[in-house]
C-alpha cells in the first residue's frame, strides 16, 4: 500500500486544477466575446450595430428557449445535443451582442438584461414556445437552414468582425442543420404518431417563416446604405429560394409536404413581438434586475 500513499498525494494535489479541465480546451484561434469586447473597432455606424443586434437577439432568444430542454429531453443523448445547440447559439449571441454594444458603450449583459421587450429585435419564430420535441425540431429545422445560408454569406461580410463571428458560427450551425434534418426524417418516417406530430409542428410554425425573409426592415435608408449596399449584411429575400429548396427536399424525404398556410405579419425587427416574449424575458431577466449594478 505504500505505493498508493504517494499516488494519493499527487491525486489530491490536482484537486481543483482548472488546467486539467477538458471543458476549457478551445481552439487557439476561437473568437470569444471577451476578445471582441477588448479588440478591434466598434461597428462603423449605428445601422451596422443594429444589424449585429438583430443577429444577436435571434440567437439569444433561441438559446433561451432551447436551454429549457436540458434535463427534459427524450434521451440523455438529446439532453446533450440540444444543450450543445443552445450553447452554440448563446455563444453566437454573446459575440454579436458584444460587438453591437460597442457602438453604444454597452456590454452583452446590458443588452440582454436591461432592455425592455419592445427593444428586442428578434424574429417571432425564435420566441415560439418549445412545444413537444417535434415542435422544437421543426423550429430548429427552419432556423438552422436559414442561419446556415445567412452565415455562409456573412462569412464574406465587408465588416470583418461580423465575418469572423459568422465564419465560426456557420460550422456549428451546419451541425444544427444536420441534427434537425436527421430528426425530421426519423419523426416523419417513424411511427404514425410521430409523423402526425411533426406534420402538425411544421404547419404550426410555418406562418413565422415569412418574417425571416422580409426585406422591409432593411428598406430604411441607413440600413440599406450601411448594411445591404455596403456588403455588411444581406437582404434576406436573397436567401429564400435556396431555403425553400433545402426545406422542400428535407420535408419530402421525411414524407412531409410544404404547408400551404399563410405567413403571419412579423414585426420583431421593429420590436413588435408575439405574446410569448414578455414571459421569456421576465424569466431571463428577473435575477439580474433584482440586483442593479451587481456583478456576477
Amino acid at each position: 500500500m505504500s505505493g498508493h500513499e504517494t499516488a494519493d498525494l499527487d491525486e489530491f494535489q490536482s484537486f481543483g486544477d482548472v488546467t486539467a479541465s477538458a471543458t476549457r480546451v478551445t481552439p487557439g484561434n476561437a473568437l470569444r466575446p471577451e476578445d471582441i469586447a477588448v479588440q478591434g473597432e466598434p461597428p462603423s455606424s449605428e445601422a451596422v450595430a443594429e444589424y449585429a443586434l438583430w443577429l444577436g437577439d435571434d440567437a439569444l432568444i433561441l438559446a433561451q428557449r432551447l436551454s429549457w430542454w436540458i434535463s427534459r429531453a427524450p434521451e440523455i443523448e438529446e439532453d446533450i445535443a440540444l444543450g450543445n445547440i443552445a450553447l452554440d447559439q448563446l455563444g453566437h449571441a454573446r459575440s454579436f451582442l458584444t460587438y453591437a454594444g460597442k457602438f453604444w458603450g454597452k456590454t452583452e449583459d446590458d443588452l440582454a438584461y436591461w432592455r425592455e421587450e419592445e427593444e428586442f429585435r428578434s424574429c417571432h419564430l425564435m420566441e415560439q414556445p418549445n412545444g413537444d420535441f417535434g415542435v422544437t425540431i421543426a423550429r430548429q429545422l427552419f432556423v438552422s437552414v436559414y442561419q446556415y445560408l445567412l452565415y455562409t454569406r456573412l462569412a464574406e461580410s465587408a465588416d470583418s468582425t461580423i465575418a469572423a463571428i459568422a465564419a465560426k458560427a456557420v460550422k456549428e450551425v451546419d451541425y444544427h442543420r444536420d441534427h434537425a434534418a436527421q430528426w425530421t426524417l426519423r419523426l416523419g418516417r417513424g411511427t404514425e404518431e410521430s409523423a402526425a406530430r411533426i406534420r402538425r409542428a411544421v404547419e404550426d410554425l410555418w406562418p413565422y417563416v415569412g418574417e425571416l425573409f422580409e426585406d422591409q426592415p432593411y428598406a430604411d435608408q441607413r440600413m440599406h446604405d450601411d448594411v445591404v449596399a455596403a456588403g455588411v449584411g444581406v437582404a434576406p429575400s436573397t436567401l429564400r429560394a435556396e431555403w425553400d429548396e433545402q426545406i422542400a427536399a428535407i420535408l419530402a424525404e421525411a414524407g412531409l409536404e410544404v404547408p400551404q398556410v399563410p405567413f403571419a405579419m412579423g414585426g420583431g425587427r421593429r420590436g413588435e413581438h408575439s405574446e410569448h416574449l414578455g414571459y421569456l424575458l421576465a424569466e431571463m431577466q428577473v435575477l439580474a434586475r433584482k440586483h442593479p449594478g451587481a456583478s456576477w
Binding site: T23, P33, L60, Q64, S67, W68, I70, S71, R72, I76, D79, I80, G83, N84, A86, L87, L90, G91, A93, R94, L97, E108, D109, A112, Y113, E283, M284, V286, L287, A288, H291, A294, S295, W296
Partner: peptide, 27 residues
C-alpha cells in the same frame, strides 16, 4: 437546470449550461 434560464449574466449562463451538459455526459 433550475437556474439556467435565470442565470444573471450570459457568461454564467453559458458556463452553467456547459456544466449541466457535462453531467449528462458523465451519466
Amino acid at each position: 437546470a433550475n437556474w439556467i434560464t435565470r442565470a444573471p449574466s450570459l457568461k454564467r449562463k453559458a458556463i452553467l449550461m456547459a456544466k449541466v451538459q457535462d453531467e449528462a455526459g458523465h451519466g
